[in-house]
Amino acid sequence: MNLILIAMILALLIPIYEAWQDENIWQKMLAFASIASKTSVMILVVSVLRGDWMIGVVGVIILSVGNAGLMLLAHVIKRMNEA
């Protein structure tokens, strides 16, 4: 099962590289969204591997409400580009 997690870490490196290299702010936001989803899914996988329900609940909460910050930031950046 460790192999699954290693593969997920490698998949996580792709949007991190994208966020580092691409200067376009919306590409960075896309990479941010990708990383936010991937990390919370990884938390869920770890919780299932260990059978730890406390981590599982935290993973579900991060997955469901963590993207609200992304929405707010996207709105501010959109307003900035319009002005």
Binding site: I16, A19, E23, I25, K28, M29, A31, F32, I35, A36, T39, S40, M42, I43, V46, S47, D52, M54, I55, V57, V58, G59, I62, G66, G69, L70, L73, I77, M80
Partner: peptide, 27 residues
């Protein structure tokens, strides 16, 4: 603004690290 987006990425990665290390409340 780019730094803000990367700050969000850092927050996501930090939450993952804390959860994997067993500190669910900190995550």
């Amino acid at each position: 603004y780019n730094a803000l987006v990367i700050r969000g990425i850092l927050g996501g990665v930090a939450a993952l690290v804390y959860a994997v290390l067993g500190a669910a409340d900190v995550a």
